[in-house]
């Protein structure tokens, strides 16, 4: 790797991290706005036009707040937990193909993705989301508080049980596309139509497990306000709380982007139509890549909206219902999905 490449990749990393932070800020605003609309309210509209600067004001406030560590807490782990959470959330962004190649320097193409052509991208994502449990479980345990511990334990149990179904539901997609490389999966879908039409069951399973993995309602047991005060982040304040919160929204956007990549055709605007030929553009030309980037972000944003919409519509699952759904319904369904996909593919070939 030469210096130019190193600098460009560093710049890309900086861009992606900042993009994630700003996206998370506006997702918080979107969450508050959508919840307000669903409840016939207006939502934040004072800070900046249409409340646009509300999240930044909130973050500023979090920076100024006192950082309280409970006397009985394990300080090192208490400080480490938010770092793990946010680091894991950011790492996933490295492999998400936000856009195709935009510029070419010294024969190497660069897009808005750090490692789009990584051949184990999908495995990296699954591995990283698993490590995310450590952040939450450590946060709950190191606080040395009952509510936090309950939240941490619940989240560990929930994330581990739903990870199985999540991983298994992806296998159907991998079987069809024959690759773990996200760009290749998107290219396959551009050529053959979106995976959601071939794998509707896997899409539903992935969606449900993604809700559980990101601790979103109706699976927000780790932070169930009415039962656990704040769940695993009860004992956090100031920017440490901010980081945990940010990681949560970062994970939400990452799951939405992954869902768009795996099932909704990634950056393909309309299924079963060759848009590049229709518009008379070269599929790898700059305007086409920009259109695709917009489409990808639009799909991810729509899925984020659905996440928020579901949160403000559905009540929370009970713990036993959660475990029943995960182990007795989603796991057998995803196994059946793999079997059927495998048999059909075998018969077709």
């Amino acid at each position: 790797m030469n210096l130019t490449q190193f600098l460009i990749i560093t710049a890309q990393a900086g861009m992606l991290v900042n993009m994630m932070l700003i996206a998370a800020a506006y997702m918080v605003l979107a969450e508050r706005k959508v919840s307000a609309w669903i409840q016939n309210r207006l939502g934040p509209n004072r800070v900046g036009w249409w409340g646009m600067l509300q999240s930044f004001a909130d973050v500023f406030k979090l920076y100024l707040k006192e950082d309280i560590v409970p006397a009985a807490a394990d300080y090192k782990f208490h400080a480490l937990a938010p770092v793990i959470s946010i680091a894991v959330a950011i790492t996933v962004y490295a492999v998400i193909p936000w856009s195709g190649p935009l510029i070419e320097i010294d024969g190497v193409q660069y897009g808005l993705a750090m490692a789009p052509d990584m051949n184990v991208a999908l495995l990296t994502i699954l591995a990283m989301t698993s490590v995310g449990v450590y952040g939450v479980a450590l946060a709950g345990w190191s606080s040395n508080s009952k509510y936090s511990l309950m939240g941490g334990l619940r989240s560990a149990a929930q994330m581990i049980s739903y990870e199985l179904s999540m991983g298994l539901s992806i296998i159907g997609v991998v079987l069809i596309c024959g690759s773990l490389n996200l760009v290749e999966i998107i290219q396959y879908q551009t050529a053959n139509g979106w995976n959601v039409f071939y794998q509707p069951l896997a899409f539903v399973i992935f969606f449900v497990t993604a809700l559980a993995e990101t601790n979103r309602a109706p699976f927000d047991l780790p932070e169930a306000e009415p039962e656990l005060v704040g769940g695993y982040h009860t004992e956090y304040s100031g920017m440490k709380f901010g980081l945990l919160y940010l990681a949560e929204y970062g994970n939400m956007l990452a799951s939405s982007a992954i869902m768009a990549t795996l099932f909704l055709g990634g950056w393909d605007p309309v299924p079963f139509i060759d848009e590049a030929a229709l518009l008379g553009l070269d599929p790898y030309s700059l305007p086409m890549v920009l259109i695709q980037h917009g489409v990808f972000v639009g799909k991810a944003a729509t899925l984020v909206f659905v996440f928020i919409w579901i949160r403000w519509s559905l009540p929370r699952f009970r713990y036993d219902q959660l475990m029943n759904l995960g182990w007795k319904i989603l796991l057998p369904l995803s196994l059946a999905n793999i079997t059927i996909t495998g048999i059909v593919l075998l018969l077709l070939n």
Partner: peptide, 12 residues
């Protein structure tokens, strides 16, 4: 149901 609520007038 919740989607329809979004377009109703607000009480704020």
């Amino acid at each position: 149901l919740t989607f329809r609520q979004m377009f109703k007038p607000t009480f704020t």
